[in-house]
Design a binder for these strands. Structure first.
Length: 424
DNA sequence: TCTGGGGTCCTAGGACCC
DNA sequence: TCTGGGGTCCTAGGACCC
């Protein structure tokens, strides 16, 4: 058996790069992309990174953006999702096994491909750029955790490396491990990093030198796997099968604070409806609906309140109407007068596969009732764009709708092409 | 007099990721 | 005025059973 080789392919400043593909005039202009509601900065082009921190509240950095000529965009997930599919198709066409890990990252196994792998990676990089306009970095290593690290290095020393780093050479690996802070490792967040520092483990290399069993006892198996992977022993494999999600969530901050129950009811109806749609998309049923509601958490002068409630459904279902009904019953119990609410969430849990569920003889589950209606609804919404058909109770213009003042056009979607066609 | 112990299931909460 | 959204895995501890 040949030693396994993993690659991590990661798009550079993905959301910012997507915006730039359709705005070549901004090729050298620093760009940031904002979270929903234009709340905070969630992506920065390379030039913007020097000036703006990740997660910085937009309203705080606004003057700074202006001062440095940084252009801001509201997030446009329809666009990013579409660009992501294009990038992944190129990878899947070229590589034998690909695991799409997130919207902008994929792992791949390069085991057995002809050397030098670095050349394959460089060609791949060029092809993705040429076909999609998106620049990527590629890390190569014997484990996923090390491939992540290699990818970091490829981005950090883009000029010197040409965006590709192969960490299979132990000497090169140790050199990099010694200069990597422990908190930069995949799987070590801020909490664990602080705890490790308290044990005088500051760099990735020091972590590889620590005793695995002690670490396992002090932390958990995840930590153990991380350490073993850093030492070069693969503990994680490529996962190509997409498992159905175990929870489905739809949550948004409102565009403005809401005090009255009515507009919040509208929002929760919309969130429940969207969550039910996702549920049907993956062919699952749910038994539980959790609704939660909260006020703003940052402003000290605002009265704070946060509460959630779990509603059991009488039988597993994917029917929007039942899910909305349960969510609204929950909302009534959670809502208190006198607060300014900032955000609501609908979470579907205790899921099972549609095909696995057979209602027993005496259950109250109606067989197939509403299924026809739901699939028609989904078909229309897929054909004409999300929200074409909605629950009747939803108002046309919503008080809760997001603020997205800086949204780019939907360059790539069918809905947009229809609009353009009509305009002609 | 004496008040077990082991296994399993479930849930909440903590930590992480992008 | 204004601070995202959507997930996963692991563990501890309680409930329950025998």
């Amino acid at each position: 058996m040949p030693e396994p080789v993993f690659a991590l392919i990661d798009c550079n400043s993905f959301y910012a790069s997507c915006e730039r593909v359709f705005r070549p005039d901004l090729a050298r202009t620093p760009i940031v992309v904002l979270s929903n509601n234009d709340g905070c900065v969630i992506a920065r082009s390379a030039e913007a990174k020097a000036w703006v921190k990740m997660g910085a509240p937009f309203h705080e950095v606004r003057p700074l953006l202006k001062r440095h000529g940084i252009v801001a965009f509201s997030s446009n997930y329809a666009l990013y999702g579409d660009m992501s599919e294009r990038v992944m198709s190129v990878l899947e066409a070229r590589l034998p096994s690909v695991e799409v890990y997130s919207i902008d990252e994929a792992f791949a196994e390069l085991t057995g491909l002809p050397e030098p792998l670095e050349n394959i990676a460089r060609q791949l990089r060029a092809e993705v750029l040429q076909k999609t306009g998106i620049p990527v970095g590629i890390g190569i290593a014997p484990t996923k955790t090390l491939a992540k690290l290699a990818n970091h290095a490829a981005k950090r020393w883009q000029q010197q490396t040409g965006g590709v780093v192969d960490l299979r050479d132990p000497e090169r690996r140790n050199k990099l491990l010694r200069m990597t802070p422990v908190g930069d490792i995949w799987g070590i967040g801020s909490r664990l990093s602080a705890q490790l520092k308290a044990l005088d483990i500051n760099t990735a290399w020091e972590l590889t030198q620590a005793d695995v069993w002690t670490l396992r006892k002090r932390f958990n198996v995840v930590m153990e796997k991380t350490v073993r992977e850093l030492r070069g022993t693969p503990c994680m494999s490529l996962e190509q099968v997409i498992e159905p999600k175990q929870e489905i969530c739809c949550s948004r901050s409102f565009g403005q604070r809401l005090r009255e129950l009515t507009p919040i009811t509208d929002a929760v109806t919309a969130f429940a409806s969207r969550a039910a749609e996702k549920l049907r998309q993956q062919g699952s049923l749910c038994r539980q609906v959790r609704v939660s509601l909260r006020t703003g958490m940052f402003n000290p002068s605002e009265a704070k309140y946060a509460n959630g409630i779990l509603c059991q459904l009488p039988y597993p279902t994917d029917d929007s109407r039942l899910i909305i009904k349960a969510a609204l019953l929950g909302l009534e119990q959670v809502y208190r007068e006198g607060f300014s609410y900032a955000k609501a969430q609908v979470l579907l849990s205790d899921l099972c596969r549609h095909t696995d569920y057979t209602p027993d003889l005496f259950s109250q589950a109606p067989i197939n009732q509403g299924q026809q209606l739901m699939s028609t609804l989904d078909a229309i919404n897929q054909r004409w764009g999300r929200g074409t058909l909605q629950p009747a109770r939803l108002a046309k213009t919503a008080d809760w709708a997001m603020r997205q003042k800086l949204l780019s056009p939907a360059y790539t979607t069918r809905w947009q092409s229809t609009l353009v066609a009509n305009a002609k």
